[in-house]
Amino acid sequence: MDTTESIADLYTDHHGWLQRLLRRRLGCSETAADLAQDAFLRLLARPRRFDSPAGARAYLSRMARGMCVDLWRRREIEQAWLAALAEQPEPLAPSAEDRVAVIETLYRVDAMLRRLPEKVARAFLMAQLHGQGYKAIGAALGVSERTVKKYMARAMLECALLEVRLQREEGGDAAPLAAPADDGAGR
């Protein structure tokens, strides 16, 4: 109860300026209101203590900046997806839920791949999305199979590091969205 109370205080003290800051950044008051709300929900989910109002302010504006970047990237992915869809010879119209789920996944995957060099990301996608063997990938990218294997290890390490961070941010208990169906069987 103690934490809820301090959240209430934080909300009273900081909600106004945070929302204004977000509105200035995003140019849209509705989205700003949503994000400001989210920021406090996150604090409610994972309470923190601040030693001073200035500390809380710094933390919240850092959080706001991160949220704006996330939002922008998510939309960037959505637009890229729409553009790719428009280019398909016979686009099948996915349902709204499918669309949300796939864009969420793409957003995460893009975040994982964006830090990798072009060839490494390409090789990883060829293997993971298209199920191509290392030999074929090597031939396509003009590198040896051994290099492809190195690319795979490097890409997976980057992805796994981000996965660790994501799960930690989601509160530690979160297995990624879908039920871990038949993966992980037999050990």
Partner: peptide, 13 residues
């Protein structure tokens, strides 16, 4: 964690 990453890609595949 490696498996969790694999699941994300599997969903796309």
């Amino acid at each position: 964690y490696v498996e969790a990453v694999g699941r994300r890609f599997a969903r796309l595949r």
